[in-house]
Write a protein that binds this DNA or RNA. Structure first.
Length: 553
DNA sequence: GAATTTATAAACATAC
DNA sequence: CGTATGTTTATAAATT
């Protein structure tokens, strides 16, 4: 995934390459620690308490963090609300306690219980992956409404999909949660920053947890400017202790409207997140506000620093970039995401995942592989304002209500894999691939057949695809038929088992579709029966034994 | 900034 | 011959 900083097109801070992804992540972590909640302990904060997150690395599509809890999204749909089945909060908690943290999985997606907060509806909202857009959407269903980045969601938008961006802050009944995608630089909405700056200053000090980005945000904030003007800055340390105690229940209201902290964000980033698979590192240390003393590299602070898995060395650089351990310079916030990988977005019908964790022996879900949704390749660029890099011609014809469908922002390898995996057998003919694509994507219907040349080209070039004679299969017609290469499949599964499938760099196009398929189906069809196997052998021996007059059914 | 992937175009090759 | 399938080679653009 590209370095995030290049993808932000808005706002002076996010545009400034001098800020690193770690700094943005650290900011998000700090923000997470100051999110407000309600004055009763909610189930989620018990169930998904940061203190329970023992594993160092967790793979998930995304995560939703509250003040002191973190829910790893491992299903394509998560409902959020108050679980009234557990009338007795204590009892409910007890029941949940026996489950490994965050491993909730059921066919319909999991649920985040914000009860017993009465301000939360039973079915307050849903966070669901949108296969059409490749983004995660928030759908508010509760009558009590909700806020997104401190802005109340208008009633006419209730029950509608609202695209979420990494770093968005959701508020349901006074419980704030931040949505984070792996391998995506989180951007805190400017409107939110206005509210958070005072608290951040209070908790992390004027030096912003030693994070240059936060320091600048603080320095430029109208809040600090105003405080300085009235000579209140020196009181900040004092306010600290007071606010530290209350911050959880009473968010500080920004003294005024904000400033130029950053401009509209609406546009933000998106592109930033390419597809991703995520491996989210769990905070070994709870995402709890650190006291001011921890702002510096004190020994205690250092002790809190999480250690990266030993595999770090082999992890792709992205991993290192976003890992916390790399933040030696500033504070120690927890939580961070590591690595990520692409996954694909459109997965047709089977969007009902159940990522049963792949498992891993770790009792407490440390590593399970999941798949992350993908984000449109460069399509998202279109709505970004200054997208300087002219979109490639192929994406030019963006429809935008114009009716002209866009070219799906997915590589051909992914599209073909989709076609293959759309079958029961994992075997498909070229013509059926065409058919699949024509049916699924309007774009292909409205354009010349040049894309078919590309499909064929990809098939013969990409090692992930294997051609086998139809005859070997009980398929009518002549010619060949395509499937996922047996060896490729085996290697992919091996990676999956080891939790590295999501880290694949080569042939990410096919892998992301396989990953998605695994998460939703738990297996990849294996069309290699003895006959086919024998065919492969024949192929090898074929050299001398003249062609095997295949077909001719 | 280099290496790798992808996308496109197109010439060829083969089977039917 | 013509069409559908595949393979290859080139080249440019996008991504990692």
């Amino acid at each position: 995934m590209a370095s995030p900083q290049n993808k932000f097109t808005n706002g002076s801070y996010i545009n400034d390459p001098k800020y690193t992804p770690e700094q943005f992540n650290n900011l998000a972590s700090c923000v997470t620690s100051i999110l407000s909640s309600v004055d009763v302990e909610i189930a989620a904060s018990y169930q998904y308490s940061n203190g329970k997150n023992k594993s160092k690395e967790i793979k998930a599509f995304a995560k939703l963090s509250g003040n002191n809890w973190t829910y790893f999204i491992k299903t394509l749909k998560v409902s959020i609300g108050r679980n009234t089945d557990k009338l007795d909060p204590i009892e409910g908690m007890a029941a949940i306690e026996t489950e490994p943290n965050n491993v909730t999985t059921d066919l319909n997606g999991s649920n985040i219980d914000l009860g017993p907060a009465k301000t939360v509806s039973r079915k307050h909202g849903i966070i669901e992956f949108n296969s059409e857009t490749g983004n995660w959407d928030l759908i508010i269903t509760g009558r009590n409404g909700a806020k997104l980045n401190y802005k109340k969601i208008k009633t006419h938008n209730l029950n509608k999909r609202i695209s979420l961006n990494c770093g968005d802050v959701i508020d349901m009944g006074g419980i704030q949660m931040i949505f984070i995608l792996p391998d995506t630089v989180p951007l805190i909405n400017s409107n939110c920053l206005t509210h958070f700056i005072p608290k951040l200053v209070t908790i992390y000090g004027l030096n912003g947890n030693n994070n240059p980005l936060m320091q600048d945000l603080i320095k430029d904030s109208s809040y600090v400017k105003q405080q300085m003007k009235i000579g209140h800055l020196e009181n900040i340390p004092v306010l600290n202790s007071i606010l530290l105690e209350n911050q959880r229940f009473s968010p500080i209201e920004p003294s005024e409207k904000v400033s130029e902290i950053s401009n509209d964000y609406d546009n933000d980033l998106d592109n930033k997140a390419d597809e991703t698979i995520a491996i989210i590192t769990t905070p070994t240390d709870p995402v709890v506000p650190l006291s001011p003393e921890y702002n510096h590299n004190t020994s205690e602070y250092n002790a809190l620093k999480r250690t990266l898995p030993e595999k770090t060395g082999t992890l792709p650089k992205k991993f290192q970039i976003s890992s916390i351990s790399s933040n030696k310079q500033y504070g120690a916030m927890p939580t961070k995401l590591l690595e990520s990988q692409p996954i694909d977005q459109l997965v047709p019908s089977h969007m009902h995942p159940v990522p049963k964790s792949k498992v891993t022996n770790q009792p407490d879900f440390s590593s399970q592989t999941i798949i992350p949704p993908l984000q449109p390749r460069s399509e998202s660029l279109d709505n970004k304002k200054e997208i300087r890099k002219e979109v490639s011609p192929s994406e030019k014809d963006i429809d935008k209500s114009g009716k002209v469908a866009n070219k799906p922002p997915l590589p051909y390898g992914t599209l073909i894999a989709q076609a293959i995996l759309s079958t029961e057998t994992g075997i498909i003919s070229l013509s059926d691939i065409y058919e699949f694509l024509l049916k699924k994507y309007e774009y292909f219907r409205n354009t010349s057949a040049d894309w078919q040349n590309s499909v064929r080209h990809t098939l013969s070039l990409n090692a992930a695809f294997q051609k086998i004679p139809k005859k070997k299969i009980s398929s009518k017609g002549k010619g060949m038929v395509w499937c996922i290469d047996r060896e490729y499949r085996a290697e992919f599964l091996k990676k999956w088992e080891n939790g590295y499938a999501s880290k694949t760099k080569k042939n990410a196009a096919v892998d992301k579709q396989l990953l998605l398929h695994m998460s939703t189906h738990k297996f990849i069809p294996e069309p290699y029966d003895n006959e086919i196997r024998s065919h492969e052998i024949e192929k090898q021996e074929m050299s001398q034994a003249n062609g095997i007059a295949d077909d001719v059914q």
